[in-house]
Every structure is written in structure tokens, then in C-alpha cells.
């Protein structure tokens, strides 16, 4: 699973440019499902047949990146796509999503919270044009049970779903839809389309949790997060208990959490036919940096949890 995660982290998937990651996921899961397709919006949907009850498991698959807006010799000027802060990207290596060009991000002004992408440029090596999309090169490190790198708060979820598909195939009861949603950073877009089309009975959204934005004592290292509520959704208690009872029985460590802020994927699921919606999370340290950190145990337990829904 760690290798899978590392592969996923190395594949650029800037919002709207998720095709390479989709290709990788498809190559991994095509023998472990009954059907897979890319919908007209760009979401990858993987289906495993089961009984009449339908469960959608959703995770976003995109990451922040850069649009090249102007070129002066090997200096590329750019705008941000997604949400990463300009300051965070200074000194980071980048690569073109399509093509071979690489480069490093340089600030033209003092590096502080006021720094804007318009006051930065990429020192580029190789052919690049206005309109090209660049992604951050991921620097992945494993220290003990922890993995560090960029976009883990999104890509660890992709690894979890990928592994869960392999484990669930022919071991499932409900009909399962695994929805890898596109353009999530641009307004939770993919999840809206996926929810509309699939309109499942149950939805589980996989997301990252964070100690600092938690209203409970749930913390990194204490097990996966089972969300009681956030500012968007409150999970039906009976539905929640239906799976936490199984987690208890199967010794899957979890913590109940109340998060300050939720993800609109859960709202999308609610709105599409009133799906019973739950949110499961893995803890991320240093969120929104290029050195986000997760625990391998968390994502392994999350896979087990998905087998017990």
C-alpha cells in the first residue's frame, strides 16, 4: 500500500488535469471491479456489484498547480489553480503536466504572507508555453510510521480507495461505487456530479482530519476519525453506529470527532436523493504545506474500515 501511495503522489493531478492519475487507478483496479467509467465531467467511477443497497465511497483526486500566463525566455509567469499559498511554493521544483519541462519557483519580492503568485516566476528548463499547466514535484519521505509529502490530504484517500476496491471485490454485500472526484479544489465540483448520477442510498466521504480544526480531543495517532458532525453534515446516529459497532468488533481503532469545517462532498450526497452520509477521516499534520504528514496505520485502518461498512 505504501508503494501504491508513493506512486500516486508522484503522478501530477492538478485540478482539471487528473487524466494521468485516472489512468494509473484504472490500471490497478481493472481486474477488481465489475465496471469502471469516466463520467462526462471527468470523475472516475468504479463499480462492484452487490445487493440492491447502494453505497458510494468518495474521495477527491486533484491537487493544486499552476497555469503559465506569460513567458519571457526561460522565465515563466503563472497563476495558481486550487488553494496552495504562494509563500509555501517558493523554492519548490515543478514539472509540466504535459511535456518534459521542469523548473523551480522563485519569488521576485520578499517572502511573507503578502506574497502573490503574480510576484513570482518559474525558472524553467525545457520547452513550455503560455497555457501549460505545471505541478509541484513531490518530495516523499518516510520516517517511522509517518509519510511526509505534498497533497497527502488528498492522495492518501486515493490510495485508501484503491486498496479498498481490491479488498472488497467479491467480498462485498452492498453494491459499491467508488467515486474518485475531479476538480474538488475548484468547489467540490466532481462530487456534485457523481452524487447526482449515482444517487446512492449511502455515502461515505473520505477526507483528511486535522487536530487544530477539531472541536473534540481527537488527535493524530489516535486512530481514524469517525465524524459525528461538522458545519455541513451530521451523520445519522443509527447509521454511524451500524459501522462503528463493526469497527469495535474488528479492533479498528477510531476516534469520534466534531470538525470545525466540513467538505461539501457530503452536502452534494445529501442533496442527491437524500443519501445517508458519513465522513471518515485520516489525520494530517502540517495541512496545506508541501510536507503534510500522515500515519501509515491510519490509512491501513481506513481500508479495513471500508471493508466493514
Amino acid at each position: 500500500m505504501i508503494n501504491t501511495l508513493k506512486n500516486i503522489m508522484n503522478i501530477p493531478s492538478v485540478s482539471g488535469n487528473e487524466e494521468y492519475l485516472k489512468e494509473y487507478i484504472i490500471s490497478e483496479i481493472k481486474n477488481y471491479c465489475d465496471e469502471y467509467y469516466v463520467d462526462n465531467f471527468g470523475n472516475l467511477i468504479v463499480k462492484i456489484n452487490g445487493n440492491d443497497e447502494t453505497l458510494m465511497i468518495n474521495t477527491p483526486m486533484d491537487e493544486s498547480g499552476f497555469l503559465i500566463t506569460h513567458k519571457e525566455e526561460n522565465k515563466l509567469y503563472f497563476a495558481g489553480i486550487g488553494g496552495i499559498s504562494p509563500k509555501e511554493t517558493v523554492g519548490k521544483f515543478v514539472k509540466a503536466v504535459d511535456g518534459e519541462a521542469k523548473g523551480i519557483i522563485v519569488a521576485d519580492k520578499e517572502i511573507n504572507d503578502e506574497l502573490k503568485f503574480s510576484d513570482m516566476h518559474i525558472e524553467a528548463f525545457g520547452e513550455a508555453e503560455t497555457g501549460d499547466i505545471f505541478a509541484l514535484e513531490n518530495s516523499i519521505n518516510q520516517l517511522g510510521d509517518n509519510i511526509f509529502g505534498y497533497a497527502l490530504s488528498r492522495k492518501a484517500g486515493v490510495a485508501v480507495l484503491l486498496e479498498a476496491i481490491k479488498k472488497s471485490y467479491k467480498n462485498n454485500t452492498k453494491t459499491l461505487y467508488f467515486a474518485f472526484s475531479a476538480e474538488d479544489l475548484l468547489g467540490f465540483k466532481g462530487a456534485k456530479v457523481a452524487s447526482n448520477v449515482i444517487s446512492p442510498d449511502y455515502t461515505v466521504v473520505i477526507t483528511s482530519s486535522c487536530e487544530q480544526k477539531n472541536l473534540t480531543d481527537a488527535k493524530f495517532g489516535g486512530g481514524i476519525a469517525v465524524r459525528i458532525k461538522d458545519n455541513i453534515v451530521i451523520t445519522n446516529k443509527a447509521f454511524r453506529k451500524s459501522f462503528t459497532d463493526k469497527f469495535d468488533k474488528n479492533d479498528i481503532p477510531y476516534q469520534l470527532e466534531i470538525a470545525e469545517k466540513g467538505v461539501f462532498n457530503s452536502e452534494a450526497a445529501y442533496n442527491a436523493g437524500g443519501s445517508q452520509t458519513a465522513v471518515l477521516g485520516y489525520f494530517v499534520k502540517n495541512p496545506d504545506t508541501t510536507y503534510e504528514c500522515i500515519s501509515i496505520k491510519d490509512i491501513e485502518n481506513l481500508v479495513k474500515a471500508l471493508e466493514n461498512l
Binding site: D39, N40, L67, T69, A79, K189, K192, N196, V197
Partner: peptide
């Protein structure tokens, strides 16, 4: 030409999310 900033927005916002998604 290509539009070279990421500012602004238009009807694509709602059209692309309708039904099963629109390119």
C-alpha cells in the same frame, strides 16, 4: 489567444455541473 489569468467566472460554472456533467 488564451485567456491568461484565472480571474472571473461565467455560466460554465453551473452548466458543467448539471445532470451527469457537461464538458
Amino acid at each position: 489567444q488564451l485567456k491568461r489569468t484565472v480571474m472571473g467566472g461565467n455560466n460554465a460554472r453551473s452548466i458543467q455541473l448539471s445532470g451527469g456533467g457537461v464538458k
